[in-house]
């Protein structure tokens, strides 16, 4: 039997195949410092697909759609496993949405969305590698330019 590098959980969510460098960003999205149940984080784990990967296991939590959308932008290969009674009852890969509102900040300091009280808006123009266009200033952003709010 394969030895687990990060212990299993009985109930909750496992986010696997996180791009290694995005592991702690995903942890921030999930606001783990305020979760009272078990949280296990693995980092620098070996992955056939990614080389190195991160994994986060959270007891008793189901992700919201907004959390899934945010994760998809910084860890587009991530898989989400829903665990019940120590079994995987549902597994899916995150899907990058076609458009993004509110939870991202335009990286262009001169963009109107950073100066007026408006919701930021973006269009995903390419999913792999991810390229996002600001609805307002039309600047393009890649994965390293993404700043979630």
């Amino acid at each position: 039997m394969k030895k687990l590098e990060v212990s299993a959980i009985e109930e909750g969510t496992v986010i696997d195949q996180i791009a290694n460098k995005s592991t702690f960003k995903v942890a921030n999205i999930l606001n783990i410092q305020n979760i009272e149940q078990v949280v296990l984080i693995g980092f620098n784990l070996s992955s056939k697909k990614l080389g190195k990967k991160g994994i986060i296991k959270i007891g008793g939590k189901l992700l919201t759609q907004e959390e899934v959308n945010k994760i998809s932008l910084i860890a587009p290969d991530a898989t989400v496993n829903i665990i019940k009674d120590s079994e995987v009852v549902k597994k899916f890969t995150v899907d990058i949405p076609d458009s993004i509102e509110e939870f991202m900040k335009c990286f262009n300091p001169n963009c109107v969305s950073n100066h007026q009280k408006i919701l930021s808006r973006f269009h995903v123009i390419h999913k792999n590698p991810i390229r996002i266009r600001c609805h307002y200033c039309e600047r393009h952003m890649g994965v390293d330019d993404i700043e979630l709010v």
Binding site: N110, V112, S113, Q116, I118, Y136
Partner: peptide
């Protein structure tokens, strides 16, 4: 005409 980028779209 505006000094902020995207002001016209807004």
């Amino acid at each position: 005409r505006h000094f902020l980028e995207g002001a016209s779209r807004l």
